[in-house]
Nucleic acid binder design. Structure first.
Length: 583
RNA sequence: GCCAGCGUAGCUCAGAGGUAGAGCAGCGGUUUCGUAAACCGCUGGUCGAUGGUUCGAAUCCAUUCGCUGGCUCCA
């Protein structure tokens, strides 16, 4: 076991070690199932997996047995040996392994490399650690089905996932992080904090926002609207259903059918639930001739859309069938595209900062194989996106061929408090829809010219963003977002009147506060307020009543003692106004 | 949609062929208390649904709905 020495880089290559662990696991599995078919077994973030074809399905009880087998192999201190063989001998070596044979056939070189540890041999590019003994601390975590080569038309193999780290401490700390993530799971907190629910009776992927979650959402929406209006957006509302023909014209019926719900019959006409908001905004734009002087026109809407999702993919609020996008469409001239994109990026950065997200990964997705529009339009708009990123001094990576069929896009992934990625803002240039719908403006010469259209969402969807926020804050929202900002806790019934006066004053001041008037002891009320993650607890007893003060306890447990009610109100109002993240 | 696991009271869970259980929550009392759970009592479930096996099913089997972890796909 080689460990890091302070100031030095670890001697072990973690990725090679994890990959080696995958081979060891494959050997252990073959020990248990000699006829096991081998798929692939790479290193992944935090660990590794290996795909197997087995005579029976694995159960969780198999994992400890496999782990034991692995530990024996690790203890045996067997060297990993690389050898290069020509394809013919490789085919011979893996003659009983159809998946390996398929891989061999696809490798371009005449020779392939094989790694052996003891009796186990695997087709593999490497690299590996020198010996099985160099594999650090590991744990098998889960079993899952996985299609061979990720193709749902091919056989499903059994995948075993494991995590592996250089030291037991590093593994323990990773497992602790996983446990922390489970504590912050928005599905769990959403239920506990009564933010939202999903109900079997209503159907999967359909969200019920309870008063507390709705409050958080309302605060976000108010902030969002105010900020958009400040930046020259105009708010619109559009219908949730529309004639199917509209979606045929747009191309959605052809390109997006698998996400659309079946048409409904309305007096012999077919209508569908909208999967996107863009068409509504286009129809508003097209109600009259538009002058070049009116552009850019920015139409914004908290638009609720419905998309069919396959039954296995829903996940809490993060993946649902009905959701509300913080959507907007910018209709502009091509020379306005870049400044508009810069404006969107600035808005995105401003809003994300307000919620405490400081780290992003930005991807610029370029033209896919299947696309519409001219190459020239693609090049021009991709360049506009790129220049906008450069001008905004935002580092980015190119995602070659990952754009949507109608145009290139920028995706911003944000990192939450635990360093996990979430899909954030997305900005897409679209020259398909303006063309299909003939979205034009009249230029200086009095001629019709096609507009350039930008689709953009900053938060993504209210549902997914809510999921992200809940996990980011661990359910403890900053004061400006907290569903309840203060709990007023009378010590005895004789303080109830004063408590209600305090409550009235706070509500008057625009704060969300409520008295806990239950016939319970103060300790119980504090406990409940803590569990509900209310930022401020205001204990009021004889002393406070006599002096028109409140005794302030924060969610952190910190007690700042008695404070005049007026001072407290001013302090919280300021925290709300500045959207202070920490109090 | 596919693979695997799981659905028992509002919540968290025990029970694994022989009369449905606990804690918390809720309700009714008593207690009026100074910074994370006062005390006593009570209510509450066709065991996800449907069908089957059995003298007898929460328990075994089939189908179905939902959830969880993945695969594929995505705001």
């Amino acid at each position: 076991m080689v460990s890091a020495t302070p100031g030095n880089k670890p001697k072990i290559d973690l990725e090679a070690m994890r990959h080696s662990a995958a081979h060891v696991m494959a050997q252990a599995v073959q020990g248990l199932f000699p006829e096991a078919g081998l798929g692939i077994g790479p290193a992944i973030e935090n660990g590794f997996y290996y795909d197997f074809e087995l005579p029976r399905t694995l159960t969780p009880e198999d994992l400890p047995k496999i782990e034991t087998g692995m530990r024996d192999i690790v203890a045996s201190n067997t060297p990993f040996q690389r050898e290069e063989v020509d394809k013919a001998s490789a085919r011979q070596l893996f003659s009983s392994q159809p998946y390996k044979l398929e891989l061999i056939d696809e490798l371009p070189d005449a020779k392939v490399s094989v790694y052996r540890q003891g009796s186990f041999a695997d087709l593999c590019r490497g690299p590996h650690v020198a010996s099985t003994a160099e594999i650090g601390a590991f744990k098998l975590t889960s079993i899952a089905g996985a299609y061979w080569r990720g193709d749902e038309h091919r056989p499903m193999l059994q995948r075993i996932y494991g995590v592996a780290f250089e030291t037991q401490e590093a593994l323990d700390s990773h497992l602790a992080k996983v446990a922390e993530a489970a504590r912050r799971d928005h599905r769990k907190l959403g239920k506990e904090l009564e933010l939202f629910s999903l109900q079997e009776e209503a159907g999967p992927g359909l969200v019920f926002w309870h008063p507390k979650g709705a409050t958080v959402r309302r605060v976000i929406e108010d902030f969002w609207k105010a900020e958009h209006i400040k930046r020259g957006y105009e708010m619109v509302y559009t219908p949730h259903v529309a004639r199917l023909d509209l979606w045929k014209t747009s191309g959605h019926w052809d390109f997006y059918r698998e996400n659309l719900y079946s048409p409904m019959d309305v007096e012999g006409q077919e209508y569908i639930l909208k999967p996107m908001n863009c068409l509504g905004h286009i129809l508003i734009f097209k109600t009259r001739k538009r002058s070049y002087r009116e552009l850019p026109w920015r139409a914004a809407e908290m638009g609720t859309v419905y998309r069919y999702e396959r039954s296995g993919v829903m996940h809490g609020l993060a993946r649902v069938r009905g959701f509300t996008q913080d959507d907007a469409h910018i209709f502009c001239r091509s020379d306005q595209l870049q400044p508009e994109l810069v404006g969107v990026l600035e808005l995105a950065r401003f809003m994300l900062t307000a919620f405490g997200f400081e780290e992003y990964d930005i991807k610029l997705s370029t033209r896919p194989d299947k696309y519409t529009g001219s190459l020239e339009m693609w090049d021009k708009s991709t360049e506009a996106l790129r220049q906008a990123l450069v001008q905004s001094k935002l580092p980015y990576e190119i995602d070659e061929g990952e754009g949507v069929f109608y145009g290139p896009k920028i995706d911003i992934k944000l990192k939450d408090a635990l360093g996990r990625d979430w899909q954030g803002p997305t900005i897409q240039v679209d020259f398909n829809l303006p063309q299909r719908f003939g979205v034009v403006y009249v230029n200086e010469q009095g001629q019709d010219e096609q507009v350039v259209m930008v689709h953009r969402a900053v938060l993504g969807s209210m549902e997914r963003f809510m999921a992200c926020l809940v996990e980011h804050y661990g359910g403890a929202f900053p004061v400006w977002l907290a569903p309840q900002q203060a709990a007023i806790i009378p010590i005895a019934d004789r303080h109830l009147d004063y408590a209600h006066q305090v409550e009235a004053r706070l509500r008057e001041a625009g704060l969300r506060a409520a008295v806990d008037a239950r016939a319970e002891r103060m300790n119980e009320k504090i406990r409940v307020a803590q569990v509900e993650k209310i930022p401020f607890m205001l204990v009021v007893g004889d002393r406070e009543q006599a002096s028109a003060t409140v005794s302030v306890r924060r969610l952190s447990g910190e007690q700042s003692g008695s404070q005049s009610l007026a001072d407290f109100i001013a302090m919280v109002q300021e925290a709300v106004r500045t959207r202070k993240l920490m109090i």
